[in-house]
Design a protein around this nucleic acid. Sequence first.
DNA 1: TATTGTTATACTCTATAACTATA
DNA 2: TATAGTTATAGAGTATAACAATA
Lengths: 150, 150
Amino acid sequence: MEKAEASEGDAAERLTRVIESIVRQLRQAAAEGGLSPTAASTLLRLSEGGPQRVTDLARLEGVSQPAMTQLADRLVKEGLAVRRASEDDGRVVLLDATAAGAATVDARHTARVGRVGALLDALSASEREQVIGALPAFERLAALRAHRDC
Amino acid sequence: MEKAEASEGDAAERLTRVIESIVRQLRQAAAEGGLSPTAASTLLRLSEGGPQRVTDLARLEGVSQPAMTQLADRLVKEGLAVRRASEDDGRVVLLDATAAGAATVDARHTARVGRVGALLDALSASEREQVIGALPAFERLAALRAHRDC
DNA sequence: TATTGTTATACTCTATAACTATA
DNA sequence: TATAGTTATAGAGTATAACAATA
């Protein structure tokens, strides 16, 4: 049991470093599409989850309500999203991705998949099998925190 | 072979989504220490790699030289780094982490390891084994791109 | 001349506080 | 009154262009 705990702590340390390395690398490549990190994440959210309220988007993205209003302004100005009125509540503004916005999300995602695929190709067959074998566990890991805000 | 390619493409797609999810979650937690992403990454670089030139740091972090000069100003102002002269070249300024800067890096890293450890704890024993088993492959994956700038 | 770093200036993105409209 | 969203204003962080100092 002592041994198991020790190896688990070491695993957390190693996994953290792997994540830190990947995050650092992605941070530089993220600006490519001309979208800020929050803009890209919000657009992805709209593209996948449909129209959503400004207040909810602000909370989900961890920014202030005015910041989300201004991000909405920019997305609308660039033709990536539109504002819609809510049928239920006259105070509510729903933000919705346009076709151009969804296309932008797709393009960014496709580019990322290509880069990740290239990395997988660079691994040996046995390493690739290890990664693929661990995918279900990693998907669970990612989902564990996602439930907090999604 | 067709089957292998198909499963590899699927793996790239799934791994990309896992990474996107984790990145999105970390992005919100990143501001905790009061450091910008570039500031945190630069400080980590100094803490691990020792004193480095402004020009090199700018290139490694993917920002302009003036941006790195100004980041150096902020780090120095906050007592996290100091400017040193180069013995070889009078034009060069070396940036070096202070003890306080190194302590900040450690604190941030420790907090992250704690969060990742909590995620690992939430997995089943078999899932955890899968993740741990795939760690060497993931470390290789992370190193594949790291060589570009480190 | 070329290179290193800084200064000057402007733009993007964010936050807090104050405001308007609807519930 | 409370809530949804916007407007006003200020600050952090970035880029490009122009500059100073050293090679």
